[in-house]
Design a protein around this nucleic acid. Structure first.
Length: 591
RNA sequence: GCCCUCGUAGCUCAGGGGAUAGAGCAUCGGCCUCCGGAGCCGUGUGCGCAGGUUCGAAUCCUGCCGAGGGCGCCA
């Protein structure tokens, strides 16, 4: 194992593991090398619990085993240890060791976060709005979580391919294009370019339902579209282009990385559907059932307890999303050479993805998890819960429709602006506008990222925009305030980097230890595809900084203590800004 | 009916096998007028229920209760 750069847990694990192994071997054990079980501790910097299971396995007393481990002096030069309770090894770092680790992490571009040892090509499939509809609150989580995963994966050294599978194909396009023709291209373009996709859709729907003549034309238009009639394709392309302009406005406001380069509309997989069918047939997986072409992956049953099919070709001859999802798997593996793919899609689709991945594995397109280099699944459904209103039901506008994303963003920024003008009326107008945007959008995104993604969460403006608690404004404020220390001291931040650090006071030690935990925090969040783990870390960091700042005068202290404390300030600001950056949130310099 | 997810403090949420289960908000009680701008410190109540595995369970397993969701031709 390559030792991690900064992570204190890994450092101690690497020291203790050989000692544990030697004791196990000496006692005649031939099994797996024992795990030192290093964990954060309330009683010391860290605790190693590995003596308890090892003593159980070897038949000795846990305290004796712990003593034998310590007799080998595995931590000399970096930490002291003592045995506590039933056999816990409490580890306390030497101040000098912590200080020197922190000095180097503070002076490191990566802030101590190590790169992956095995760079992969990772596809992240997220956002996926429907071309006929405006983006709404239902797209918030996939967009924000997906974007955060992209940023984290990129940072640790993976090659990341974003895919935005917009819904740009299907029968509704018949009526939409017919409506476009009736309005006249110029008028339609004007309405759509204003972003009123929902209004356009409603009007088309009304005509479709009320006018049989229109309905017939819409159906013929679907056939024309499917046969790639040039004039129809031109209209379709225009419609898609105007819709994606709306998406791009939302992405820009939200500060997500998606661009037109990432568009992978469902239309682009239509031509690959027949090949999916051929290959499923060649693999002997295809069965006919009730007139449809299906695959029966084992382990899935329906209402009646019978095998549950994955339908890949409807009785009517049409393909569906199972077919296109299988086509995307083939495309990613064979054309884009993906090692891993993440589908950031709501939790209700769990069974669908299980079936699709299973079929892809049966067809030989995906390895099983056991056959990947790291033993982790090659295709992952990154599932998430709903955004709930105060009534604990899906967040809706007053009119009972899903809240439009653009309106959520506007309101977040307005509310942030109001708070800021109250807290800091002295900010120049242009700065205030910029900061309000960062705070409002940051609050919205952070509220979404900071709870366990699998759970539903209750949307609450006051809570997400509060300057107290686990919120973006709190973290942004902590960051801005640290920068103000340097401004008032008239010290250039970069000049303190690499300066020696001393950790005499408990809050200083706690802060230093927390800062060194950034490496592990990023990796922990990434390993679970759970941004909220990073949020928790950043909040704890900001809390530790507050305690430090309350107890340890910075600018009033004498050199070299003053410089040392400025290193802690600088490093905290760097990690806060960087961590927020990984979440896709800006950290303004003033607030 | 089967399957999936969730159930932790009054509220919103952390805690994915380790010691007395944490935070924010709310409540109540102190302190403080700050290099320096979110003030600081203290304060009660809780792991849905019942079993099991384990040296050790909020965490893993089983059953039950409750909430939400899914269950063949929409995506």
């Amino acid at each position: 194992m390559v030792p991690r750069m900064a992570d204190p847990v890994s450092t101690i694990e690497a020291r203790l593991a050989p000692a544990f192994a030697a004791i196990a071997t000496a006692a005649g054990s031939t099994g797996e090398p024992p795990d030192p079980v290093v964990r954060p501790s309330e009683h010391a910097d860290l605790q190693a619990n590995g003596a308890l299971p090892l003593a159980k396995a070897l038949g000795g007393s846990p305290r004796d085993v712990a003593q034998q481990v310590l007799d080998r002096r595995p931590l000399d030069g970096i930490a002291t240890a003592e045995i506590a309770g039933p056999g816990f090894i409490n580890v306390t770092f030497d101040d000098e060791f912590l200080a020197s680790e922190l000095s180097s992490a503070a002076d490191d571009d990566r802030l101590g976060v190590h790169r992956t040892e095995r760079p992969e090509t990772v596809v992240v499939d997220y956002s996926a709005p429907n071309v006929a509809k405006e983006m709404h609150v239902g797209h918030l989580r996939t967009t924000v979580i997906g974007d955060c995963l992209v940023r984290m994966l990129t940072f640790v050294g993976h090659r990341v391919l974003r895919e935005n599978h917009i819904g740009d194909w299907g029968t509704p396009f018949g009526m939409l294009l017919e409506h476009l023709v009736e309005l006249g291209e110029d008028d339609a373009a004007e309405q759509l370019s204003l972003g009123d996709l929902d209004g356009f859709y409603r009007e088309a729907r009304l005509k479709f339902d009320a006018d049989d003549d229109f309905k017939d034309r819409a159906r013929r238009r679907v056939v024309l579209l499917q046969s790639h009639d040039p004039d129809t394709m031109r209209l379709w392309e225009m419609y898609v282009k105007l819709s994606t302009q709306h998406f791009n406005r939302v992405y820009h406001r939200l500060g997500v990385l998606l661009s037109d380069d990432d568009l992978a509309g469902e239309s682009s997989y239509q031509s690959k559907m027949p090949e999916v069918m051929e290959r499923l047939a060649a693999a002997g997986l295809l069965t006919e059932s009730d007139g449809a072409q299906v695959v029966f992956p084992p382990g899935f049953t329906n209402r009646e307890g019978n095998p549950l099919p994955l339908i890949v070709k409807a009785r009517t001859g049409g393909f569906n999303y199972a077919t296109s999802d299988l086509a995307t798997v083939i495309d990613r593996v064979e054309r884009r050479h993906a090692d891993r793919m993440l589908n950031v899609v709501g939790a209700p689709q769990a069974q669908h993805f299980q079936m699709v991945f299973k079929v892809a594995e049966m067809a030989g397109w995906l390895p099983s998890a056991q056959d990947t280099p790291d033993g982790r699944p090659p295709a992952v459904h990154v599932a998430f819960g709903n955004v709930l209103g105060p009534d604990r039901k899906m967040l809706k506008s007053r009119h009972g429709e899903p809240m439009k994303l653009i309106e959520l963003i506007d309101e977040a920024v307005e509310r942030a602006a109001a708070t800021l003008s109250e807290k800091n009326p002295a900010l120049p107008a242009d700065t205030a506008e910029h900061v309000a945007n960062a705070v409002g959008v940051g609050a919205l995104k952070y509220a979404d990222l900071s709870t366990d993604r699998i759970r539903d969460y209750v949307f609450d403006w006051d809570r997400m925009l509060s300057f107290d608690g686990n919120t973006a404004p709190y973290l942004q404020y902590a960051h801005a305030r640290i920068l103000s220390i340097f401004r008032r001291a008239d010290v250039e931040r970069s000049t303190v980097r690499g300066q020696p650090v001393q950790l005499g006071e408990t809050p200083e030690r706690d802060l230093a230890l927390r800062l060194l935990g950034y490496d592990a925090a990023v990796w922990d969040a990434l390993d679970r595809y759970s941004p909220h783990r990073l949020c928790s870390y950043l909040y704890e960091l900001a809390s530790d900084f507050t305690t430090f700042y309350e107890h340890c005068p910075v600018l009033r202290s004498e050199e070299p203590l003053r410089a040392s404390r400025l290193v802690l300030c600088d490093s905290t600001a760097s990690v806060l800004a960087h961590g927020l950056g990984l979440l896709g949130i800006d950290a303004p310099e003033v607030m």
